Simulated scan of single mutants.
Amino acid sequence: MNRQLRSALGVALAATLLITAAAAPAQAHRAPAKPSVISLPDGFQPEGIATAGRYAYFGSRATGAIHRIDLIDGEGRQLSPATGTPSLGLKVDRRGRLFVSGGTGGDARVIDSRTGEVLARYQFASTPTFVNDVVLTPEAAYFTDSNKPVLYRLPLGRRGALPPADGFTAIPLTGAYQQVGSGVNLNGIVATPDGEALIVVQSNTGTLFRVDPATGVTTTVDVPGYTFTNGDGLLLLGRTLYVVQNRLNQIAVVGLNHAGTAGTVTGTITDPDFDVPTTVAKALGRLYLPNARFTTPPTPTTPYTVVGVRPR
């Protein structure tokens, strides 16, 4: 082998080793795959979920405690202690404030999602009441009451300023919506794709309604050939509406028109790890749902989980 050939081979070998050495650390430090099933504390009895970045927040229907979980490594901690009343539907805004529906407490709380400090509390109604879910718009937070044909509106001021304790209004629902029996009526709530109105699901009839937030007038969302039996949490991504059907262990996927007056069911999402999921939020390319396990008698040691599935 001549000197020129040995020199060329030496240069090639050195370059190969350099490339391999540079690539190895990146491969060795690759982030672990996100878990698709994450444990919540035993006995927690989750209901609502809200997400911000890599974190998810869960409310306990049993105690009102709020738990925060890192969706990448599955680690969690208590953010807010038990209140003695439920914490149900949750939403978090860009300012890091968590809006919490108070169930049978008839109230709502606004919590700092970093410190757990209660920033404000609003007493909407007295019993019988069940403040179930919440949606945030640029102008207000709207809450459903499963026991009454009404929405509660919490106006947001300049730069999202919260109103005083009595600064909310109740919006009676009229038109197509009718309260039925004593079961769970109004449940999940989202804004329409055009942002001009709201959509709610009535759990015990499986019907979607479009609500004019200025007047409370409702119309039925036309979804031919489908009833959203056991409809619970709602999530809107673009013009796709995800409707959690809790005891059916599935999510109905609905393509809506721009105004949210009509839609078509394009499919359903199921997963063997679903165990009566209630609400849904998107994070890190997945839909995450807490398993409420309504059909399992709760005990202090009953396990609860969160399931991540791919959207469609």
Rank of each mutant, 00 (worst) to 15 (best):
5 L>Y: 04
18 L>A: 14
18 L>S: 06
23 A>R: 11
24 A>G: 09
28 A>L: 14
37 V>A: 04
45 Q>Y: 12
45 Q>H: 07
52 A>K: 13
53 G>S: 07
54 R>M: 01
57 Y>W: 09
68 R>G: 12
72 I>D: 05
78 Q>M: 15
83 T>N: 01
84 G>A: 05
84 G>W: 07
89 G>Q: 03
91 K>Q: 12
94 R>N: 12
97 R>L: 04
99 F>S: 13
99 F>G: 03
100 V>A: 01
109 R>A: 02
111 I>E: 02
114 R>E: 07
120 A>S: 14
122 Y>Q: 13
123 Q>W: 02
123 Q>L: 09
123 Q>F: 06
124 F>I: 01
126 S>Q: 14
129 T>K: 02
132 N>D: 04
141 A>G: 05
145 D>K: 04
146 S>W: 13
147 N>H: 08
148 K>M: 06
154 L>C: 11
156 L>E: 09
160 G>A: 13
162 L>F: 15
167 G>S: 06
169 T>A: 10
169 T>C: 04
178 Q>K: 13
186 L>S: 06
191 A>E: 10
193 P>R: 05
193 P>Q: 04
195 G>W: 10
196 E>Y: 08
206 G>E: 08
209 F>D: 09
211 V>N: 00
213 P>Y: 03
213 P>A: 01
213 P>E: 00
217 V>C: 00
219 T>L: 08
219 T>R: 09
219 T>V: 12
221 V>H: 02
225 G>F: 14
225 G>L: 14
226 Y>E: 01
228 F>C: 11
238 G>C: 10
247 R>M: 02
247 R>A: 10
252 A>R: 07
258 H>Y: 03
266 T>S: 06
267 G>P: 02
271 D>H: 08
272 P>R: 02
280 V>R: 00
280 V>Y: 09
282 K>W: 05
283 A>E: 11
289 L>V: 02
290 P>C: 05
291 N>Q: 03
292 A>D: 09
292 A>F: 10
294 F>A: 04
295 T>Y: 01
296 T>H: 13
303 P>I: 08
305 T>S: 14
306 V>P: 01
310 R>G: 05
